[in-house]
Write a protein that binds this DNA or RNA. Structure first.
Length: 710
RNA sequence: GGGAGCUUAGCUCAGCUGGUUCAGAGCAUCUGCCUUACAAGCAGAGGGUCACAGGUUCGAACCCUGUAGCUCCCACCA
């Protein structure tokens, strides 16, 4: 039943008439007169089947004991048409009376349910199929013919003899081989099984009690369900590749399991003294591939041959296993079972389950569908790191991932981005005598704080196995914070077409930050990060990023980060105004600030001047005439504007902001005036609401002032 | 039939212990820019009744119940 896919197909359901006889009665189906008499007097029972050729293996007919229609058949027999075999009519409540005719033909060799019925009622077993799907000697008819040919033929033959009551169209599910798409039908064979009941218990317990963690933990329920209903494991396979089953048979049908042939001979010779070495034969089957794979955590450290070895003692159990959920049962569960069975210990602590890679249409990637991309081609197109980042980008833990080449494209663009950042920094000329400007000093401090904060976050995300979030955090830290903000802050200006040099302090700090960033990128993009690591500085032999120390974090300077927040909002507002008023980025403008927050302004002043291309940034106590205004937090800002200003448009814009802020304040006030909220909410939530109230009020005041001045 | 899970922006998905303007990110889209690292780029913008209906709560995308749709695993009907 493994590797079998059930598909719904259109079939025919054949209703066949089996003549009923008494225990001592024998008839010949070739005797037309008798047959016709029986059929015309209702002395038959009708069964239904989609596989009429299996009647050759029928050894019984089964009905429900409570079925009034068939009660009179107790002790009677049915004669299998064509085959002319007399088989008992048995009674079992397994039968569904409503289905078909309520009578079932029983073919123990070719149906699992029939097999079980056969054992219960002591029916004969006739294996009518050869391994290649043709009819066997035992079938008695059509010997050597393909079963599907026989299916057509036997219907004609039965029809001719009047044994077919009717034929109906019918939808049923048929098993197909996952690999070859051949129709799979049950056939009796001798197989080796592993009894799972006892051996699997520790594997269940230790996942449920958290000794082994599944990530994400939604898989625990599935795991539990599977382990509680675990079936005995069929471990033999009829293949030539694999580990041969270590069982030996003597010439009398006895068998033993042994490590070697010699040992097997010794064991077998106990009951068979004359047994010669050449007389015993090893089983030709090999073990299921998972039956060797489940030993992997132990055998990879040579733990079977050398159970007390250095490696196995040091490495076992390992920390993390990364694999796909589709083999949670096949492989993971069985490795855990083997671990407890052979070493009395778990093989690993955490199991990180990735998604299954699917194509854009959600289909599983497979060789037969041909929908897997060629990784080599992708790498040529996007680079190994680009492809790697692309794969990671669409891989949230435990969820299937829909692969799309555009992710790889994004990965390539990211490689390109970091490469260009490197070119920029490397292209600067350093002037050791140049003093560090205030703007650069603040920029360095800010990025240091930002880096520190984000690395802490990244560390935490790693700890929690939130890989996609970690990835996006790194991505944004590099692209937004480092490239878009930091490098723009410190980038030297040009004078008369020539770039100014950069001071040594800032340059050194930048290279150091660059190194930290490369370390963060290295697990995601190993090649480009290693390459840039070596291009960034002269390195001694062995100073490689792959073994470099991870960025160490320290206390976070929250106040600086907060002040940057304000400054970046100002920059964004100015850019917005430039765009909406069609002011070229090259044109210098002035900015006036009116507000209480003097310190945060001055700290980032130089940076704001640079990023907004200002000729000056002044504080003012009065409103500025003929200016475009905006409000950030609770500060008012003015940009003098010579062209005529559309007062109404300005009013409208500010009014919108005012409405929004007032609405916000209202929602806060609803909470704060709710006695039950004040009584029940946690103190920090309450304090926060009060702060929101104060901030909103201040902001409203600022906006109203600006509005009034228009 | 048994079990698990999912439904949030055009797409792919985050959203942890119910509480920040919590409705987010990336991509895509739109607008403006060939600004001396990067047009594979820069700067902006728009976009969602959190599947639906109830309930619990001061407060719900989040907890509970029901409904609908989808996915996966296991078993399988003559």
């Amino acid at each position: 039943d493994e590797e079998v896919i059930h598909k719904e197909v259109n079939s025919k359901l054949y209703y066949l008439k089996y003549i009923i006889v008494d225990k001592d009665e024998n008839i010949d189906l070739n005797d037309e007169a008798t047959v016709n008499r029986k059929l015309s007097t209702g002395n038959f029972i009708t069964v239904a089947t989609v596989r009429p050729e299996t009647i050759l293996g029928d050894t019984g007919v089964c009905v429900h004991p409570d079925d009034e229609r068939y009660k009179k058949l107790k002790g009677k027999f049915a004669v299998i048409p064509f085959v002319n075999r007399k088989v008992p009519i048995i009674f079992d409540d397994y039968i569904m009376m409503e289905f078909g005719t309520g009578a079932l033909k029983v073919t123990p060799a070719h149906d699992i349910n029939d097999y079980n019925l056969g054992i219960k009622h002591n029916l004969a077993v006739i294996d009518t199929l050869n391994p290649n799907g043709t009819m066997s000697e035992a079938a008695g008819f059509y010997i050597g013919k393909d079963r599907f040919e026989v299916r057509k033929q036997i219907v004609k033959d039965l029809e001719a003899k009047g044994h077919i009551a009717k034929v109906e169209d019918y939808k049923n599910k048929v098993g197909y081989s996952e690999r070859t798409n051949a129709v799979i039908e049950p056939r009796l064979s001798m197989q080796w099984f592993l009894k799972m009941q006892d051996i699997s218990k520790p594997a269940l317990d230790n996942v449920l009690n958290g000794n082994i963690k599944l990530i994400p933990d939604k898989f625990i329920n599935t795991y539990k369900h599977w382990m509680e209903n675990v079936h005995d494991w069929c471990i033999s396979r009829q293949l030539w590749w694999g580990q041969r089953i270590p069982a030996w048979y003597d010439d009398k049908g006895n068998f033993v399991v042994a490590k070697t042939k010699e040992e097997a001979l010794k064991k077998l010779a106990i009951g068979n003294k004359q047994l010669a070495n050449e007389k015993i034969k090893q089983d030709e089957d090999v073990l299921d591939t998972w039956f060797s794979s489940w030993l992997w955590p132990i055998s990879v450290f040579d733990g079977f041959k050398n159970p007390d070895g250095k490696d196995i003692n040091y490495y076992y159990p390992t920390n993390d296993l990364i694999t796909a959920p589709e083999i949670l049962f096949f492989w993971v569960a069985r490795m855990i079972i083997a671990g407890y069975e052979y070493r009395q210990e778990k093989p690993f602590t955490n199991v990180y389950l990735t998604g299954i890679v699917r194509d854009k249409q959600g289909r599983k990637m497979s060789k037969s569908l041909g929908n897997s991309p060629d990784p080599i081609e992708l790498i040529e197109k996007y680079g190994a790191d680009g492809v790697r980042l692309g794969m990671l980008m669409c891989s949230p833990a435990g969820n299937d991932l829909l692969f799309d080449e555009s992710y790889c494209e994004q990965g390539r663009n990211f490689s390109n981005k970091i490469w260009n950042a490197f070119r920029l920094v490397k292209g600067w000329s350093v002037d050791a005598k140049l003093e560090q400007s205030n703007g650069n000093k603040i920029a360095v401090e800010w990025f240091d704080a930002r880096l520190n904060k984000q690395v802490k976050l990244i560390d935490d995300l790693y700890d929690k196995y939130r890989m996609s979030e970690m990835l996006m955090t790194v991505y944004k830290l590099v692209w937004d914070d480092f490239c878009a903000w930091y490098l723009e802050m410190i980038k030297p200006d040009f004078v008369d077409g020539n770039p100014l040099p950069i001071d040594k302090k800032t340059y050194e700090a930048t290279v150091q930050s660059f190194e930290s960033i490369l370390k963060l990128m290295h697990p995601i993009m190993p090649f480009i990060s290693e390459e840039l690591w070596h291009l960034l500085r002269d390195r001694k032999e062995g100073d490689d990023i792959i073994i470099a120390t991870w960025h160490q974090t320290s206390a976070i300077n929250n106040s600086l980060l907060h002040k940057f927040e304000l400054a970046s909002n100002v920059v964004t507002e100015v850019r917005n105004i430039r765009k909406s008023k069609n002011i070229s980025p090259k044109e210098k403008i002035s900015l006036f600030q009116k507000g209480a927050d003097g310190e945060s302004k001055s700290l980032f002043d130089d940076i704001i001047i640079k990023l907004c291309n200002l000729d000056k940034l002044n504080t003012t106590k009065e409103k500025v005439e003929n200016a475009i205004s905006f409000v950030v937090k609770q500060n008012e800002y003015f940009i003098p504007f010579n062209n005529s200003i559309d007062i109404n448009a300005e009013k409208e814009r500010l009014q919108k902001e005012l409405d929004y802020t007032q609405g916000f304040l209202k929602s806060v006030m609803v909470k704060l005036s709710n006695e039950r909220f004040v009584a029940n909410a946690k103190p920090e939530i309450l304090a926060n609401e009060n702060k929101k109230k104060a901030d909103a009020e201040a902001r409203i005041k600022a906006i109203e002032e600006v509005l009034a001045s228009l």
